[in-house]
């Protein structure tokens, strides 16, 4: 359809009742700026938002770390466990970029290899937090009532339980394997992710588009997956990056307690080893380079997470009252 107005109903109203795209585009040519405004009449395409150079630097750093960690076995690196690669506590040089440690092992190679375990722990933990916490939170926020009370109780219980005690309990009884460390940190991530997912779901479940889907006859599963999930994932994706940063640091903390992964080494463990008083005095680079790598990665994760959340938060106030 378009025009059902009788012609000449009103002398000054010669234009279509529904000025839409075609009308606009078929109009006689006018000034550039004015034309732009006609475009604006129908659609507001101007996002006006940029992620910015810093964001891409952060992404670049994370990409570099990720690629290095994944490709470590194939990179022309010294064997990280090979003692006597250089002398004892050699300072950084052309051969050993980050110097060598007390056993003459290449710190650069060890930092790259250390990223593997740190990233795996961070990733597994946050994926677990997202999967369990996210599901719990969305169900609680959507169904409310009894489901909400149960889920909230569970999350409060997890929050109330001292995280360190839980980690000690699990790792001491199950042994400090990669799986146990990752899963322990994952359990600790469930409650914060769940709280956020629940809050976001509560916000969106009230919105008319969810009610409209119900009126159309969509079932609960469809509403959760099609209507709620895409919206709830936005704040969650930001939190995931922040959470990964927190987990990487937490793993370092566990390493200080001697609770990190037994076989192999993470950044945390490298820092602990480099932080022995004599090593720190004679070869500060042994601790400094893993610390630097962890610092930059955590900074990048935090910044990217924050920026991403801001960027994805679409402007819904296309018009104001």
């Amino acid at each position: 359809m378009t025009e059902q107005l009788p012609p000449d109903r009103h002398p000054r109203q010669q234009r279509d009742a529904h000025l839409h795209v075609q009308d606009i585009e078929s109009q006689t040519s006018v000034q550039g700026g004015y034309e732009a405004m006609l475009g604006g009449l129908s659609f507001d395409d101007s996002r006006g938002r940029r992620l910015g150079v810093t964001f891409w630097c952060a992404i670049g750093w994370m990409g570099l770390v990720l690629v290095a960690a994944v490709a470590a076995p194939w990179l022309p690196l010294a064997d990280p466990d090979q003692t006597g690669f250089g002398g004892r506590l050699d300072p950084p040089s052309g051969d050993a970029w980050f110097g060598t440690d007390g056993n003459g092992r290449d710190v650069f190679s060890r930092t790259v290899w250390g990223a593997r375990i740190s990233l795996v722990v961070g990733f597994v933990a946050i994926v677990m937090g997202m999967a369990f916490g996210g599901t719990l939170g969305i169900l609680a926020g959507y169904f409310r009532g009894t489901v909400d009370r149960l889920a909230s109780f569970l999350m409060f219980a997890l929050l109330a339980f001292p995280g360190l005690v839980l980690a000690l309990l699990f790792i001491a009884s199950l042994g400090p394997s990669l799986t146990v460390v990752s899963l322990t940190l994952g359990i600790l991530a469930i409650a914060p992710v769940g709280r956020l997912a629940r809050a976001a779901t509560l916000l969106y479940a009230e919105r008319e588009f969810v009610q409209a889907a119900r009126v159309l006859g969509a079932g609960h599963g469809r509403i959760i997956v099609r209507e709620l999930l895409p919206n709830v994932l936005v704040p969650m994706s930001g939190l995931a990056l922040l959470g990964m940063a927190i987990t990487v640091v937490a793993e370092g903390g566990l390493a200080f307690l001697g609770l990190s992964v037994a076989d192999g080494f993470s950044w945390g463990k490298l820092i602990v080893m480099g932080a022995a008083p004599r090593t720190l005095r004679d070869g500060p680079w042994v601790a400094m380079f893993p610390i630097g790598a962890m610092f930059l990665t955590v900074l990048a994760l935090n910044y990217a997470g924050d920026r991403l959340r801001w960027y994805l938060d679409v402007r819904e106030l296309a018009f104001e009252r």
Binding site: R207, E208, F209, A212, E227, P230, E316, L317, F319
Partner: peptide, 10 residues
């Protein structure tokens, strides 16, 4: 509310 009636992600 016309804005709230439409899913911003679809």
């Amino acid at each position: 509310d016309p804005i709230s009636s439409l899913n911003p992600r679809r």
